[in-house]
Amino acid sequence: MAALKRYFRSPAAVLGLTLLVAVVALALSADLLFPRNPLGLAGRPLQWPLDNPRFWLGTDTAGRDIAAQIFHGARMSLLIGVVATSIAIVLGILVGAVSGYYGGVVDEVLMRVTDAFQTLPNFLLLLLLIAVFGSRIETVVIAIGVVSWPAPARLTRAEFLSLRNREFVEAGRLSGLGDLRLIFGEILPNALPPVIVYASVVMATSILLESALAFLNLSDPNVPSWGNLVGQGRSVLRTEWYVCAVPGLAILLTVLAVSLVGQGLNDALNPRLDEQ
């Protein structure tokens, strides 16, 4: 496929994919390499990386193996990224499609609701949801999805608005297709590429949101999470700064990977940019 070929022509996109594969590999090999509970006591606290061959990324304030937490944390980050993104994208597509296709009062109402979500700072809404529903990991993931749907909804709506009066849609309507088939069979496949590209942005943001929550001690303390680890390390920042540095770097690389893949997809799906 031409798009695939274009994707692999860009070094940045290939780098992103490599990084992403690496993170997935971390997640998959976590149980194999670190079968013990990553949150359990492993050794003397605050050993610097490489000081002890058993803990090549060192230990944290509570004497837990940082490497184990990085590997198991990859799993959490990816899971949060994928699930929260799916929730946000599905919700966004539904709202955007209905709003853009039907227009009128339905559109007006849905857009006011979207406005409301976009007017309320999403991190604040996230705090509210956590305060009300607790900070179990499932709740956190759903909450992140719920605060992230407005942007994909607006994007889908804009696509639908520009597509719904295209002649091929009119032709479909004349052929006797009903609304559902027009929305999902005719318009959505054409509206999807930019939304899929945007999913990478949502995924990057989701991972960042969860890590920020965890950093503030508001995410689930019972799952290994990179943000949690950074939060733990704050108390020893002056001397043992590596406790913060290592998991932060992991977040950075993961988000970078997702963004690069997203950008690569965008360039591959919109070939007109490389004519220049």
């Binding site: 295209r166 002649e167 091929f168 009119e170 032709a171 479909g172 004349l174 052929s175 006797g176 297709l177 005719e186 496949p189 054409n190």
Partner: peptide, 23 residues
């Protein structure tokens, strides 16, 4: 109806046979 735009009037993601058979 037959439309004006030869590019915009056919759904680019469907095979032309399906487009004709759809109705």
């Amino acid at each position: 109806m037959v439309f004006q735009d030869p590019f915009g009037s056919l759904n680019p993601r469907r095979r032309v046979g399906d487009l004709v058979a759809q109705g």
